[in-house]
Amino acid sequence: MSDKTLTQPGGIDYRRRQRLARLAQTLVILAGAIVLTIYVLAPVTWLVSSSFQTEAEIVSVPPHWIPDEPTLQNFEAIFSATEEEEITYETRSGQDPASGGFIPSTAKNLLPAMWNSFLVATLVVILNLLVGVPAAYALAKIRFWGRDASVYFILITRVIPDIALVVPFFLVIKNLGMLDTIGSLVLTYLAVTVPFSVFILVQYFEGLPDELDKAARVDGCSRFQALVRVFLPLSLPSLVAVVLFTFLTSWNEFLLALMFTQTEASQTLPIVLAAFTSDFTISFSFINAAGVLAIVPPVIVAVIFERYIVSGLTAGAVKG
């Protein structure tokens, strides 16, 4: 049958209609994809672009969207900041405070703060795995009296807002003499990470067949051996998800760190960054470079492990 028979005058040209519909769909998808990309990436691109600008360029009106002469001076300032560079009143006023150009004395805190963040996050991850894995195994594979109660208990601890914990935490930590230590952060971050980790793991363990457990037990494994030898090797994806979430949550946490840290002994990256933003003498390009530095590690992690993150998010949040 040729096209002609279908396009009778007055009749409906179905094929043409279908082609139009498909074209419209493609256009809508294309437009949506472009809008979404711009929405997500434009703010970040602007931040990155301004971190490569010189002080003179960053204050241009209207802004230069792309730097005329990209420079690494801001990043160099962060990585080469040392104790010797004392900022005195003279050296500071030597530059025009209105237009900035001022690298703060706290610049040297950035790298130690990154190290603190890394250390805290790593410890929190390890503790999460140590307490989370056995708990999740028990909740997923052992039929015991009190299981539902335990699940609800962990769920309830998950919805306690962090700000409600700040006041009691502060007094306890102060009385323990743990203010301004990394330990205080590790301890309190457990409250915000453990329940979520347990649910990611429970979800995954439940997907593994019960027969595995039974087979291992028949072969003479104890519960503990069944967990370590049979389940752990199989649950690698969920372990990766737990590591990622816990690490990123600790790396990004601000409120508790703001309360408990005071000096570079324990200050984490978000704290040092926040201090920059409230200092009006610091040059914008420097603050932006510091911001880029804080963004890069978690974004790289997210992009590399996208698959694990998406499955973890859906497991931990949706199917709980």
């Binding site: 979404l36 990309t37 997500v40 990436l41 703010p43 970040v44 602007w46 931040l47 301004s50 960053i58 204050v59 241009s60 009106v61 802004p63 990123l248 790396w251 990004n252 601000f254 990256l269 978000p270 960054l273 926040a274 920059f276 933003t277 914008f284 603050i287 932006n288 510091a290 911001g291 804080a294 963004i295 978690p298 974004v299 992690v301 997210a302 992009v303 996208e306 993150i309 998406v310």
Partner: peptide, 27 residues
């Protein structure tokens, strides 16, 4: 969908810093 994860991964403080700069009254 990978690009979409970028805002999720950014620390809130860095997000705040970024928007403060975007909303900046001078530049």
């Amino acid at each position: 969908s990978t690009i979409l994860l970028v805002p999720w991964a950014i620390p809130y403080v860095a997000n705040a810093l970024m928007w403060k700069w975007i909303y900046d009254s001078g530049y």
